[in-house]
Design a protein around this nucleic acid. Structure first.
Length: 595
RNA sequence: GGGGGCGUAGCUCAGUUUGGUUAGAGCGCCGGCCUGUCACGCCGGAGGCCGCGAGUUCGAGCCUCGUCGUCCCCGCCA
């Protein structure tokens, strides 16, 4: 049977657009049979394409001999049909779908392709195991809610391009086959056939190339860049992911942050959501002290409060000794959370133990501001009163305390804060909440390697007033770096880069990267900086994360067309897989079992 | 590398606590009936390596050990 519907009768409308205004029109629709209601005589089918659903009606008196064929239509058959748009009979409207006031009375149709019974139903209300969805991802994508995520992502990408184009940026592609560099994540390696025994690395980000583009005078660069990191996966981490990467010359932090705010606002707007500018800012020190994390979720309170000065002379030994040792003592007021049971508190105690806390002291505020707590007896009325006042405690609140090294207090109370918000649904129905975190430390100390490592990356510029600290107190050096955070997720980060060879060399010294090693690994960059490299800086947005949040999805897998599982497998193509021995031979590789 | 959850029909799950007859349900699927349904309805039917492998036991979906897959988290991710 010739496909006359493809060659002669072209599609005139989508299944999502017909309304009463189209009544009486002859239309040609193409799509998939979503659901069949076969009355023996009349047959109703919900025809679905990417735009929506339209009910089509087969009537034996009109489709004649074709009606036998119509009876054969099953789920996911690919159909083409010609028919008349009709107003539905009185009282037969379906308010649930956009096209629910009309139907298409079929006059001619063709089964373009039958379908095996699908492994799962494509209706939105069916729950399907993610394994099954990923193995048949092409069917999953037919589901309107998955397609909607791809559409949203497309709109966000186009909004980003549109905004950056309008700001004078050039989209430039950088190599996917590049060289491995030290520092950072594990590389994905690609063996070279022409240079046996040598390997390319897939880029962790286009960082070095975009800096070279600045040296090249491009001035404003962006790229929707695929990045690769061979690290363990999470709900918000895939081995390959996408950044909206940008870099600008002759700018400072304010320029990049201002530009980024406009960019993110444009993306958010393309998702039909709102974002008010300017985005509030916190320094890294403020973020850590108030929220315990460098990506604070500002949709709710529960801030960390310093109490060391109030408990240093209390009877409670743990706190007194912590203060004496110069450790940190902080508290959170769980507003109205005194209803937590003993079991809840035990759970929360083991929860913070997972982040290194040795315990979790708590105080329930009872009637008359009375403390109910295992540690209440160690605090005088005066101490209790001052702590209540500092934390704004009221009846029905519960106070949590952490006393330890700053890293432990920040981490455990910061995570506790998020856990409480989760349990009490404090983020429900909150608007998108952004913030900047600035003034990150330039360096961190790696206890294992016994050396300083770059917190952001080794090309980040130190604050000019802190440069001298590189020699005296390196850990106090602040970076010209900034992260943008949405709802407690880091969705982007960047910095002003080092653009002078002497400062870059100095930083490599601090990082204990030898001249020889630096020359070997980054020589091309160091050399480039000697040819009048302009001051420059930029930022990259974690695009998958941003789109996932805008889509309201808990995992970035939901906004990636063909995502991988936690073991890095593609269940559809079964990648990664074994290769032909001949391919290995050509590459000069031999695979050996390593114990 | 580590901690935790899950794995039973095509799909979603119950059954596992306390081992005991022929492993169930809803949806889907197949056949029949049905001209106004819209998650159509009614009647009938098929469909199971209880992830896989060992072990304990008279007997294992259920207990033990191992293993594989998947999800969440810690480490890791400049």
């Amino acid at each position: 049977m010739a496909e006359k519907f493809i060659t002669e009768l072209k599609r005139t409308h989508t299944c999502g657009e017909l309304t009463l205004a189209d009544e009486g029109k002859q239309v040609v629709l193409m799509g998939w049979a979503m659901r069949r209601r076969d009355h023996g005589g009349l047959i109703f089918i919900d025809l679905r394409d990417r735009a929506g659903l339209t009910q089509v009606v087969f009537n034996p008196e009109h489709t004649g001999g074709g009606h036998e064929v119509a009876h054969q239509i099953r789920s996911e058959y690919c159909l083409a049909l010609r028919g008349l748009v009709r107003r539905r009979p009185e009282g037969q409207d379906n308010e649930k779908i956009a096209t629910g006031r009309i139907e298409v009375f079929v006059e001619d149709f063709e089964i373009l392709n039958p379908s095996k019974t699908p492994p799962f139903m494509l209706e939105e209300w069916t729950l399907v195991n993610e394994n099954t969805r990923l193995r048949y991802r092409y069917l999953d994508i037919r589901r309107p809610e998955v397609f909607a995520n791809l559409l949203l992502r497309h709109r966000c990408t186009q909004a980003a391009r549109g905004y950056l184009n309008a700001q004078g940026f050039l989209e430039v592609e950088t190599p996917m086959l590049t060289r491995s560099t030290p520092e950072g994540a594990r590389d994905f390696l690609v063996p070279s056939r022409l240079a046996r025994g040598s390997f390319y690395a897939l880029p962790q980000s286009p960082q070095l190339f975009k800096q070279l583009l600045m040296v090249g005078g491009v001035e404003r660069y962006y790229q929707v860049a695929r990045c690769f990191r061979d690290e363990d996966l999470r709900a918000d981490r895939q081995p390959e992911f996408t950044q909206v990467d940008l870099e600008m010359s002759f700018v400072d932090e304010e320029d990049v942050m201002g530009l980024t705010e406009g960019l993110v606002q444009a993306i958010v707007a393309s998702a039909g959501k709102e974002m008010t500018l300017p985005v509030p800012r916190l320094t890294w020190a403020q973020a850590m002290n108030r929220f315990g994390l460098d990506a604070p979720d500002l949709r709710f309170g529960l801030e960390l409060t310093e109490v060391a000065d109030l408990v240093g002379d209390a009877e409670f030994k743990l706190f007194r000794e912590a203060v004496a040792k110069g450790l940190m003592v902080k508290a959170i007021n769980g507003k109205g959370m005194a209803g937590l049971s003993r079991k809840d508190l035990d759970d929360l105690t083991s929860f913070v133990a997972g982040y290194g806390a040795k315990g979790l002291a708590w105080v329930k505020i009872k009637e008359g501001m009375e403390w109910q707590s295992p540690i209440a007896k160690f605090f005088s009325a005066g101490h209790q009163g001052r702590i209540n006042e500092r934390l704004g405690a009221a009846e029905g609140d519960i106070l949590f305390f952490g006393a330890d090294a700053p890293r432990v207090v920040w981490e455990s109370l910061g995570r506790l804060r998020l856990e409480l918000a989760r349990r009490f649904e404090l983020t429900k129905d909150k608007p998108l909440t952004f913030c900047w975190v600035t003034d990150f430390p330039l360096l961190d100390y790696d206890l294992e390697a016994k050396r300083f490592v770059a917190m952001h990356h080794p090309f980040t510029a130190p604050k000019p007033e802190d440069v001298d600290l590189l020699d005296s107190e390196p850990l106090k050096t602040r970076a010209r770096a900034y992260d943008i955070v949405l709802n407690g997720s880091e969705i982007g980060g960047g910095s002003i880069r080092i653009h002078r060879q002497d400062l870059q060399a100095k930083l490599f010294d601090t990082l204990k990267i030898t001249r020889e090693e630096a020359q070997n690994k980054f020589g091309f960059l160091l050399e480039a900086l000697t040819f009048g490299a302009p001051p420059h800086g930029g930022l990259a947005l974690g695009f998958d994360r941003l789109v996932a949040i805008l889509a309201g999805e808990p995992s970035i897998r939901e906004v990636i067309a063909f995502p991988k599982t936690q073991k890095g497998a593609c269940l559809l193509t079964e990648a990664p897989g074994l290769v032909d021995p001949g391919q290995l031979l050509e590459l000069g590789l031999r695979v050996e079992r390593v114990s």
